[in-house]
């Protein structure tokens, strides 16, 4: 019963580490998806006195993914009744070209400013509108969200580390006697600590299975997915192959390091 209690304590601690890592990964995925959405919605308007090709825009800055010409026909149609055909044709010839530039990723405010300057240096470009103000607000909000999640994850990691350290001391205390008796009969270190490593590996596997189950249940209920869809984001909260393997590796890493610390601590005491 006592041993089961110790197992559960370590499994809970490991599960908490894995869960916080997975939440961080999921938030990162959400932010990435949101960035992608913002990137698709975001564009820069460029006014040029001559026709510019997509290749010319791309040559100006590698962040430019594609360009789209903004049709001026609608504006000219509205002026048809107010101007003579001759003036309208003249206006058509002198009217600048409007372009909408789409970027390969969501830029930082500094990148927008740099890009604007670079575009303005081009002889044929007359004006660049980066909508920096609205972009800046969204971007800062996103950064704030990222920071909050990061602080939250670090806090969880710190608390969990304390839990694991406490667990480690308990293990050290519990197994020290057995390990020292085995040492008196000439057992090599690997044999003395074999039980500890076995326990650590089993607990790591159990913690990973519990994590997979937890995310399976979350996905089955679908409320998280629904919540994300309401803001136009669709992501995979838990990839049952890659995320499970990564979580298992983290759990094994943490528990093996923990066991090694106990073993080394025990060696030093001897």
């Amino acid at each position: 019963m006592k041993s089961l209690k110790n197992h559960i304590s370590l499994i809970i601690a490991l599960f908490t580490v894995l869960f916080s890592v997975q939440i961080y990964v999921a938030v990162d995925r959400t932010i990435e998806a949101y960035e992608n959405r913002l990137k698709n919605d975001y564009s820069i308007i460029v006014v040029s006195n001559k026709t510019l090709s997509a290749a010319e825009f791309k040559a100006m800055d590698s962040i430019i993914e594609r360009s789209e010409s903004i049709a001026t026909d609608q504006v000219l149609e509205r002026l048809q009744g107010e101007m003579s055909k001759k003036n309208l044709d003249l206006l058509k010839l002198t009217l600048p070209k409007f372009y909408r530039l789409y970027l390969s990723r969501f830029p930082t405010p500094q990148e927008i400013s740099k890009l604007q300057k670079r575009l303005q240096k081009h002889s044929s470009i007359e004006r660049v509108e980066g909508y920096a103000q609205s972009h800046d607000t969204v971007y800062k909000l996103m950064l704030l969200f990222k920071d909050v999640v990061q602080i939250f994850s670090i806090s969880i990691a710190a608390v969990t580390s304390l839990l694991i350290l406490k667990e480690m001391r308990l293990w050290q205390f519990q197994h020290a006697e057995r390990m020292s008796i085995m040492a008196l009969f000439g057992a090599p270190v690997w044999l003395r600590s074999a039980v500890l490593f076995r326990l650590a590996i089993v607990d790591a596997i159990i913690a990973t299975i519990v994590l997979c189950l937890a995310f399976f249940i979350i996905e089955q209920y679908g409320w998280m997915d629904l919540l994300l869809r309401t803001v136009g984001i669709s992501i995979e909260l838990f990839d049952f192959v890659n995320d499970a393997v990564r979580s298992l590796l983290i759990a094994l890493g943490v528990s093996i390091v923990l066991t090694l610390m106990i073993v080394i601590g025990n060696e030093e005491e001897e």
């Binding site: 041993s3 006697e177 057995r178 008796i181 085995m182 040492a183 008196l184 009969f185 000439g186 057992a187 090599p188």
Partner: peptide, 29 residues
């Protein structure tokens, strides 16, 4: 370790592994 594998030690406080059965304790060496 090699030397200890050829020595048998009896302690006043027995030094038996509490969580092991008697059979496993005797089997230790």
């Amino acid at each position: 370790n090699f030397l200890r594998r050829h020595i048998g030690i009896v302690f006043q406080d027995y030094k038996l592994i509490k969580e092991w059965t008697i059979e496993k304790n005797v089997m230790l060496p």
